[in-house]
Design a protein around this nucleic acid. Structure first.
Lengths: 147, 147
DNA sequence: TCCTTTAGGCTACAGATGTAAACTGTTCTT
DNA sequence: AAGAACAGTTTACATCTGTAGCCTAAAGGA
């Protein structure tokens, strides 16, 4: 399984990946129809995206005869983590907490999801720092406690 | 304050915004120097990005005489929430939980951040569903419990 | 086998993005 | 006032993205 960190998936491609991940393994026809229904895309659009994903190594094409089979090479979970990491890597470390808070408030979470998060937090609370510093500007330009 | 939802900030622009948010209000010189140090960008690059941000309405230019002042029009918190929402909106709802879990494990969080998250989770746990369904494919094509 | 569907591959093309040079209009110096 | 230093504006340009048409080589049907 290729490291998702090394593959940049664009927005449209992401939509295709979602479908592929969900289907697990699919024919181009099935995928094209799904994308047409989901996004209203023409056949060509899905084909292009699929081809780009193959080139990037996010999807692989297998089979001997013509109706080939397409399946994900990068994992869904890893890709999502990579995307989330990427997002947080580019925002002020000081703000991560409130952003996560907002996400938790907004998203649907199951009882077990919540239990897991609580467990992780309890663990993390043990050696949590009093406060996290802003990492937006270098050296002398330390930002105020609250920006 | 303009609604961050309506302003699309690209990756490079985001770096500029971080600096502006942290500085609160700045001169272009100060900003250019900061971006040069932080990203190694030439003066022109920062100038272009700044100009695009002004055009998009994310930053405003104020002052009478020449060394103008630049300040953020969209809020940092709102922009971060919008970015996070955007990310999660495009991933399988079923996976939000584990992705959040991974983010919490990875990020630095202060004691108070953790306390806040715990509080929110406790509240949310009250009426949490047994499970969240995948929302990747339409209608008949419901995905398996586990993809 | 010949023709018609297709699946897969190549080409296209406008707009967004990252990155920066060149130009112009000001302000500060001497 | 003349030149230097600088702030702000235009233009540039390669690459990436979103979206899709067209062509060609297989597969299936008559």
């Amino acid at each position: 399984m290729i490291d998702a960190k090394n593959v940049t998936i664009t927005d449209s491609e992401w939509e295709v990946m979602r479908a592929i991940w969900t289907m697990g393994s699919t024919s181009s026809r099935e995928l094209i129809d799904a994308m047409n229904e989901l996004q209203g895309w023409s056949d060509s659009t899905t084909k292009t995206l699929l081809r780009r994903l193959i080139k990037k190594g996010a999807v692989e094409q297998t089979g001997e005869s013509r109706p080939f089979t397409f399946k994900p090479v990068v994992g869904e979970k890893e890709s999502m983590s990579a995307a989330a990491d990427d997002l947080f890597d580019h925002m002020c470390a000081m703000r991560a907490g409130s952003t996560i808070a907002q996400v938790i408030k907004t998203r649907k979470l199951s009882k077990s999801d919540i239990a897991e998060l609580q467990q992780i937090l309890a663990e993390k609370a043990k050696d949590a720092p009093e406060m996290v510093n802003c990492n937006c500007l270098p050296g002398k330009m330390t930002c105020e406690d609250d920006h």
